[in-house]
C-alpha cells in the first residue's frame, strides 16, 4: 500500500477577504515529485502556504504524515520538523549579519525555548554535512545577505536538508535564477530527492522543467482544473482549461543556453 505524505480534502483558503483556493482535494504519495501549475493569481502560493500552516484555511482538511493540520496552522512539532519550505522570495532584511553556517544551523534547531546557544557536536556535524551535500561548504562563513540568487537557493536547500525531512515544498524555486542556474538547481534537487527520499511539491511556471522532472502535475486556477502525470496534465487541451482559450505554451529549452 502506498504511503500518503500529504492528504488534502475540500480545502478552501481566503486571502484579504476573497477566496484564493476553492474546494481543492489531492494526495501526494511518498517520494513523488509533483508540480503545482497555474496562471498568476491562481492561488498557488496561497495553497502551499495553507498546507504549511503559514496561512489559515477556512474549511476542508489537511493531513501531513497522517496528522491533521489545525485551521490556524497548528501542527505537531515532530511532524513539522519533517516538512521543509523553500519560499519564493527570501527577504534577508537589511543585510542581516548572519553567516551561512549560522543560518543552516537554525534549520536544525527545534522551535521554542532553547538553552544551548553554541550547539552540540551533532548540530555542527549536521550543518557541515548539509553544506557539503548542497555544494555550499565554501560559503559557510559568508553572510547570507551577500549571496547571489543561485547561492541563496542552494543555502536554502542546505537549511532544508540539515535534518531528515519527508516533504519539501518549493514556491517558484526557479524565480530569480537564469536558465543555467535553474538547471543546476534542479539537478541538485533531483539528486537530493533520490538520496534523501523526499516527497516534493513545487510551484512552477516552467512547464518544460515540469515535463522533464516531475511525475505528477496539479493544475490550479482557484479550483483544481486537472491533475495527473505530465503527459496528460500538460496536454494542449488541459492547459487551455487552466490558462484559458488561446493559450500557447512557450517551449524554453535550457540546454540551448549552456552551449
Amino acid at each position: 500500500m502506498v504511503e500518503m505524505v500529504l492528504e488534502v480534502s475540500g480545502l478552501t483558503v481566503c486571502r484579504e477577504g476573497s477566496v484564493a483556493v476553492d474546494n481543492v482535494s489531492f494526495e501526494l504519495a511518498a517520494e513523488s515529485d509533483t508540480a503545482l501549475i497555474g496562471p498568476n493569481g491562481a492561488g498557488k502560493s496561497s495553497l502551499v502556504q495553507a498546507l504549511l500552516g503559514i496561512l489559515p484555511h477556512r474549511s476542508g482538511e489537511v493531513r501531513l504524515l497522517g496528522r491533521r493540520l489545525g485551521r490556524q496552522g497548528q501542527l505537531q512539532a515532530s511532524v513539522r520538523d519533517q516538512v521543509a519550505y523553500l519560499p519564493q522570495s527570501f527577504g534577508v532584511r537589511n543585510r542581516c549579519p548572519l553567516s551561512v553556517a549560522e543560518f543552516v544551523g537554525l534549520g536544525w534547531d527545534p522551535a521554542g525555548i532553547r538553552f544551548n546557544w553554541r550547539g552540540s557536536e551533532a548540530r555542527r556535524m549536521a550543518v557541515r554535512q548539509a553544506l557539503a551535500k548542497t555544494h555550499c561548504s565554501d560559503l559557510a562563513d559568508r553572510l547570507i545577505s551577500e549571496l547571489s540568487g543561485g547561492q541563496t537557493k542552494r543555502v536554502l536547500l542546505a537549511f532544508c536538508v540539515v535534518r531528515p525531512r519527508r516533504l519539501l515544498v518549493l514556491d517558484e524555486a526557479q524565480a530569480g535564477l537564469d536558465s543555467q542556474m535553474a538547471e543546476q538547481f534542479y539537478g541538485l534537487l533531483f539528486d537530493l530527492r533520490r538520496s534523501e527520499g523526499w516527497t516534493i511539491l513545487q510551484v512552477s511556471h516552467d512547464l518544460e522543467m515540469v515535463r522533464r522532472t516531475c511525475d505528477g502535475v496539479l493544475c490550479l486556477n482557484r479550483r483544481l482544473c486537472c491533475s495527473g502525470p505530465p503527459d496528460h496534465a500538460l496536454s494542449p487541451s488541459q492547459l487551455e482549461r487552466v490558462y484559458g482559450r488561446g493559450y500557447v505554451p512557450y517551449h524554453h529549452h535550457h540546454a540551448n543556453h549552456s552551449s
Partner: peptide
C-alpha cells in the same frame, strides 16, 4: 532561534513553527 528566523523572513519562520 525563533527571533532570528522572525527577523530574516516571516514566512520561513511560520513554516518552521
Amino acid at each position: 532561534r525563533d527571533q532570528i528566523l522572525l527577523t530574516i523572513d516571516e514566512s520561513l519562520a511560520l513554516s518552521r513553527g
